[in-house]
Design a protein around this nucleic acid. Structure first.
Length: 135
DNA sequence: GCCAACGTTGGC
DNA sequence: GCCAACGTTGGC
C-alpha cells in the first residue's frame, strides 16, 4: 500500500468534479517522472488530492480503482492514465503554507519538486497531513 | 500578470 | 553530448 499526491487545477478538474463522477480518469500527464509514478500505482492506493494554482491546498482523498492503461487523450500509448474513486473531502483543507511551515513535511516532493504532478507520499507525511486536516 | 524552476527541443 | 532557446507549471 502506497500513498500518493496528485495535483489538479480546479478549472481543469476539481475534487467536486470527481465527487460528482464518483470515478474519474486521471489522464493528460505528459511528464516522464509523473508517468512513471502513475505506473507504480496499485489498486487500493490512496491519493491526496491537491488543488494547485488557485488557493493551493490538499483538499481531499481518492483511491486508485484501476491501474495504468494507455491514456485515451494521447496517440502515444507510452502515456498512461489511471482511474480514481472519490473517497472524501478533508474536514479542513491543508494549505500549501501549512505544509511549508510544518517541520515534519519539509522533505515532501511537493516542496522539493514543485512541478511534479504525481508524487509518492510517505506514511508519516500522509498521517501528518490528515492530522492537520482534523485541527 | 510576473517570474522562478525546470523540462523539452533542436542546432551544432 | 552540450547548451541555448523556448515552453509549461505553479506560487505569489
Amino acid at each position: 500500500m502506497q500513498y500518493w499526491l496528485i495535483k489538479s487545477e480546479p478549472e481543469t478538474y476539481s475534487l467536486e468534479d470527481l465527487k460528482k463522477e464518483k470515478i474519474g480518469r486521471w489522464d493528460g500527464v505528459r511528464n516522464y517522472t509523473a508517468r512513471n509514478n502513475l505506473r507504480l500505482m496499485r489498486t487500493g492506493d490512496l491519493c491526496l488530492f491537491y488543488r494547485s494554482v488557485t488557493q493551493p491546498a490538499v483538499v481531499g482523498l481518492c483511491k486508485v480503482v484501476k491501474e495504468h492503461y494507455p491514456d485515451p487523450t494521447s496517440d502515444n500509448p507510452a502515456w498512461v492514465a489511471v482511474d480514481v474513486e472519490f473517497h472524501s473531502a478533508l474536514k479542513k483543507e491543508v494549505p500549501l503554507k501549512a505544509i511549508k511551515d510544518n517541520p515534519n513535511l519539509q522533505e515532501m516532493a511537493l516542496l522539493k519538486q514543485s512541478r511534479l504532478s504525481v508524487q509518492p507520499v510517505s506514511v508519516a507525511e500522509f498521517d501528518e497531513i490528515l492530522n492537520l486536516s482534523e485541527k
